[in-house]
Design a binder for these strands. Structure first.
Lengths: 153, 153
DNA sequence: TTTAATATGTTATAATGTAACTTCTTTCAC
DNA sequence: GTGAAAGAAGTTACATTATAACATATTAAA
């Protein structure tokens, strides 16, 4: 179930943003990459690589490297994120507009909400400072129950 | 390289703590489980399941389920943690004394430092509240360069 | 001391991910 | 436009990580 008003818009918006970013950067937003991004965005849950592979089906004579390479490209350009704790991928809901983002993963409906909050970045920096640690990359994934599911939907 | 004074103590302490916890809980801290925990503690980096398997070697006629089951037991009882972003495992440095802990992973020396800070828990709760999300489990892994490696060790 | 519970052994396979090389397509200098 | 170079995708093979399912052994408890 999608909790957005009209999920087709989510997909369209994501593709449009990707198109724009790739153009700006002189990157090739090929048919395959576009298709994989669409598939990732089929819903607001996370997508497993091999499920994407299945969905690609006959097109693109897809084999594992096909989908992993597309995902790698999309990740490098901030268009999808990997959720390490699930070995799965989600579309980025606001590409380029953040650095440290985190994920709220609902165990009931499986939707994943991407969030960015300055407070997290600050807290992290504090943590790092207090340990004299120079942070470069953060993985923050919170599993629980989303507001809609708590309400019994 | 270990940055502790005498690494044997780290292992001994971890085993002693595990022993105590298992006794308290009426759980069986079997030879296999003890051995796997020792191996996880061989250093302060993270251990991969199949490396543990190799190290078990002839003993215990080890096959994948052997080590995964031991790791599962150790995880359930808070004696080791899985580092999702590395698909690897680290010994818990203060079992039972925390709930929300996070990990500082040095990409140079590969050591993993486990931390618990009230501020993180609070920040998380704030995040969750602001999203009306009921958190149950957190994965927070920060990769970067530890203080010793920054100093050029 | 039998029974039940728990742990481990064993086989097989599932799921996730990558290396290395080939072929195709696009770009760009000429 | 053409040919060379770069980049993307195809292809084969395999590496890594993890689990299911059932058999056997060990321990704890009645």
């Amino acid at each position: 179930m999608h909790r957005c008003h009209e999920h087709a818009h989510c997909i369209e918006d994501a593709i449009a943003a990707a198109d724009r970013i790739c153009t700006e950067r002189g990157l090739r937003f090929t048919g395959l990459r576009r298709r994989v991004l669409e598939l990732v965005w089929e819903n607001h849950g996370s997508a497993k690589a091999y499920d994407l592979l299945d969905k690609l089906g006959g097109d693109y004579s897809a084999k594992p490297p096909t989908v992993y390479r597309a995902l790698e490209f999309l990740q490098e350009n901030g268009l999808v994120h990997k959720i390490s704790s699930l070995n799965a991928y989600v579309g980025c809901s606001h590409p380029l507009e953040h650095s440290n983002c985190y994920f709220l993963i609902c165990k009931k409906c499986n939707e994943v909400q991407e969030c960015c909050a300055g407070t997290v970045a600050e807290t992290l920096q504090d943590l790092a400072n207090s340990n004299n640690f120079k942070p470069e990359q953060m993985t923050l994934e919170i599993e629980g129950v989303c507001s809609a599911c708590q309400a019994g939907n």
